[in-house]
Nucleic acid binder design. Sequence first.
DNA 1: ATGCGGACCTGTTAGC
DNA 2: TGCTAACAGGTCCGCA
Length: 271
Amino acid sequence: MPELPEVETTRRGIKPHASGQVVRQVVVRESRLRWPVPPEINTLLPGSRIETVWRRGKYLLFRTGAGTLIVHLGMSGSLRVEAAGTAPKKHDHVDICLHGGNILRFNDARRFGCLLWTNDDPLEHHLLSKLGPEPLQDEFTAEYLQRLSRGRKAAVKTFIMDSRVVAGIGNIYANEALYLAGIRPGRAAGRISLDRYRELVAAVRQVLSSALEQGGTTLRDFVGGDGKPGYFRQRLKVYDHAGEPCPGCGSELRQIRLGQRSTVYCENCQT
DNA sequence: ATGCGGACCTGTTAGC
DNA sequence: TGCTAACAGGTCCGCA
């Protein structure tokens, strides 16, 4: 579920409640996540102070004096702040109880998310070390995409959803950005011009920033750090609108599958 | 090196 | 109404 805007929305919601707080206790009700919750979550995290909460791609990073907690929300995960004493709901797998009286509560129905621990630089962790540039930072450019894509036959949509190419773009925003850029999702990445990659980079930036302003996209179960949904769903132009008229030209939006992911586009506006 | 399909899970919905 | 199948915001891994 959560792509970059949802993870960043979560970070912003949680940060004021978590930064500077000392962890009082950790309760793990279900340790079978994508990877088993490591023992350090129980041994090193309690008693340590959360210094900062930051983000790399779709990973949330909680730096403490004892090491760094790495959190990924997978498809259905959320992390929200609740008052101590609030009864856990279904799929509330982990509670990080803070001395101030709040709980950071990890919920994930599908358990594709994870909580990991590292004592080293988290950016060197094997899950993060190969991530491509942040799409909202300057290193993400048309020249970069063009250079990296030469000779590649993969669909451009699959290409920009590859976290080694650029971090944080998932299925919703890949569809939206390609629509905004007027590029057909199935086009081979290696055969797209620099000018069209310029359009694409601008579109990615626009759609991600705009989604961020709206607190992310909630299709069914996403909630931010405050437990509230995001409001970008009503701004989606193509995702979740297959069979409906294209907002630009009125022709019917088509749905296909690319890399096992549903892909929606306008055959007229995207070439 | 690149690309593909399968795997990991539960919940919701569409179809019979 | 109930059963079954397909699909859902992610991404790692093993194999060709």
